[in-house]
């Protein structure tokens, strides 16, 4: 769980473009790139769904 949270933090940092040196050192502990790739894809899907939902909510509320 802790590891998943750390991955999430790294990917969110990458999305925002803000990352701390401590987190970077932490990431370097990982042996493989795949956990980042998978978390990245997961977060991208979430982002797309989030934007689509926002657009849908806005459209149904404004245009009536």
């Amino acid at each position: 769980m802790n590891r998943f949270f750390s991955l999430l933090k790294s990917v969110t940092g990458a999305f925002l473009g803000v990352q701390s040196g401590k987190q970077l050192d932490n990431d370097a502990e990982e042996k493989s790139v795949w956990p980042f790739v998978i978390t990245g894809i997961f977060m991208t899907v979430l982002l797309v769904i989030g934007i689509a939902a926002a657009v849908r909510i806005v459209l149904t509320n404004i245009s009536g």
């Binding site: 925002l16 473009g17 803000v18 990352q19 701390s20 040196g21």
Partner: peptide, 12 residues
């Protein structure tokens, strides 16, 4: 100094 995560997050 190298970074200041709090400031960076704020200005993002």
């Amino acid at each position: 100094f190298h970074e200041n995560t709090v400031v960076e997050i704020i200005w993002t």
